[in-house]
Design a protein around this nucleic acid. Structure first.
Length: 488
RNA sequence: GGUCGGAUGGCCGAGUGGCUAGGCAGUGGUCUGCAAAACCAUCUACACCGGUUCGAAUCCGGUUCCGACCUCCA
């Protein structure tokens, strides 16, 4: 077995993955802020790290995967009058903030289930860990890296940087940041503009608030992940993941908080998925290309020509490497849909293949190529390209231009199952369960149609085929007789 | 403005010095009552300008364009 290599943002290089404990992997991924509909930006990290979660388990590790839900309303901007997203939404809908959070958490879970994203081992909620966050702030203050001003607590980045490296992850220099940060209305309590809030005093109209040693307020933007990863994974753990947009300031701040509180940087490997674009543009509400996951699944958005099955979204994401940007368009998704159908058709063909005495192709070559690609920083598009080469071989074997012996067919079955089902978490667009009743029915229909064909009653034969087609059942007339399958 | 990343054929997307990634679409063929599927063949590439090299999509320099972050963000 080759080593798994993953790209570590901390070092800027691919590194051989070695967990702290040789049997167990501890992994934390930043989850959604639940104040709005789930969108593609939520799907990508969820799927990227779902693949990693599944693969690590496949490799035999016990994995504790923690992915948080952020339901604490953080400020919209740095000014003191700011509302927060969840609070604002709650006000506008006249709901309790917790109702808003709960509603969108449920929707997020529904979408994740449709995308066949496995549940993490623990899904901690930020508002349920206020105590842990307060305790962490106390430690940071005790260690001299936090200061209180007017009921708020800030992280002293400049002081921290004297003994640590603020910028270790994002490769920023504190001097540049000091130069670049513009003055914000002069009202700030911060010693330096680069400082960030650990605890924020709640203004009277701020709904989400908790008591603390510094008065009523709410925790800072970056603290929850540090507090919760520390609680469930310990002061040092293996992998921390999230979107690239989180590298700075969120993850940089997390490292600083962990070092300041525990004198330990937290995660050893930092992994970041790249962003998505829609039609070449950044997805954004102002650009009119903000498409929710539900809209993709239902096809209810003016930019979409059709509905896209969650598996198509998942498959499409896997056709690009997680560290590349990926562009969504109708053309690209339709291509992915066809590719996915082709892949699963080949698996069906494989299951029906008649073994030959000898193989005329070296199957093990492809097996090792796939493993190699997967171990090379989860290069899923390369794995898929090898699988598609095998799709051609499998189809050819059916036509007789290649031979496959029993052992190789079994190897292929195992390999396709391993990658498509176990690791990639894909399934066929129409789950063909419980088809035994239908089989009898379909055999009857095909029998009638074949009679028509024998009588050269093409009109009836075509009508049956067409009507079934409308029901998403496809007839294929082959040399060996007529076959049926779900169209998708 | 600062920091970082990217630009590959009709579309998506791998690849990082010489050897066709792959998917979808197109074209021709095989098969078929017709169709679909499948198979075979085939077409369209490496943003631009220089440089290094026997050889550059790949390395170096410059240019243009795009994006991310710097402010909540996946």
């Amino acid at each position: 077995m080759q080593d798994l290599k993953i790209y570590n943002t901390l070092s800027g290089k691919k590194e051989i993955f070695k967990p702290i404990n040789s049997q167990h992997v501890k992994m934390y991924v930043c989850g959604p802020t639940v104040y709005g509909e789930g969108h593609l930006g939520h799907a990508r990290p969820a799927i990227t790290f779902d693949i990693l979660f599944r693969y690590l388990k496949y490799l035999g590790y016990k994995v504790r995967y923690v992915r948080n839900i952020t339901d604490v309303g953080h400020l919209l901007n740095d000014a003191d009058d700011g509302g927060d997203k969840i609070g604002e939404k709650a006000k506008s809908l006249q709901l309790e903030p917790m109702e808003v959070a709960h509603y969108y958490t449920k929707k997020y879970h529904d979408s994740m289930q449709k995308l066949n994203v496995e549940n993490p081992s623990i899904e901690p909620i930020a508002s349920g860990h206020i105590i842990e966050q307060i305790e962490m702030i106390k430690k940071i203050i005790d260690n001299g890296f936090g200061y209180e001003v007017n009921g708020s607590v800030y992280f002293d980045v400049v002081k921290y940087n004297e003994s640590n490296n603020y910028g270790i992850l994002s490769r920023r220099k504190i001097e540049d940041m000091m130069d670049n940060t513009r003055e914000l209305d002069g009202q700030s309590d911060k010693k330096n503009q680069v400082d960030f809030a650990l605890w924020k005093k709640a203004s009277p109209e701020h709904i989400m608030r908790w008591p603390s040693p510094w008065g009523d307020g709410f925790p800072g933007w970056h603290l929850e992940c540090s507090a919760m990863s520390c609680k469930y994974l310990g002061e040092e753990f293996d992998i921390h993941g999230g979107g690239m947009d989180l590298v700075f300031p969120h993850h940089e701040a997390e490292i600083a908080q962990c070092c300041a509180a525990n004198n330990n940087k937290g995660a050893n490997y930092w992994m970041h998925n790249n962003m998505i674009t829609i039609g070449g543009q950044k997805m954004g509400k102002s650009l009119g290309n903000f498409i929710t996951l539900d809209q993709f699944f239902n096809g209810t958005h003016s930019k979409l020509n059709q509905a896209y099955h969650p598996m198509v979204i998942r498959f499409f994401l896997l056709q690009a490497h997680y560290r590349s940007t990926i562009d969504f368009s109708n053309d690209a998704l339709q291509a992915a849909e066809k590719g996915l159908i082709r892949l699963f058709n080949a698996i069906k063909v494989l299951n029906e293949l008649i073994p030959k005495k000898q193989s005329t192709i070296d199957v093990s070559f492809f097996v090792s190529k796939c493993d190699e690609a997967m171990n090379d920083d989860l290069n899923t598009p390369i794995v898929l390209s090898h699988l598609f080469e095998l799709v051609k071989i499998i189809n050819s074997a059916k036509e007789g231009s290649y031979d496959l012996k029993l052992e190789d067919i079994d190897n292929l079955k195992q390999m396709f199952h391993k990658y498509t089902i176990s690791i990639f978490g894909l399934h066929s667009l129409n789950q063909e369960n419980n088809t035994s009743d239908l089989d009898g029915l379909m055999n009857l229909i095909l029998d009638i149609r074949n009679k028509s064909k024998e009588n050269k009653d093409w009109a009836t034969a075509d009508k049956i085929r067409e009507e079934l087609n409308n029901l998403s059942i496809q007839i294929k007339d082959t040399k060996d007789g007529s076959q049926w399958s779900y169209k998708n």
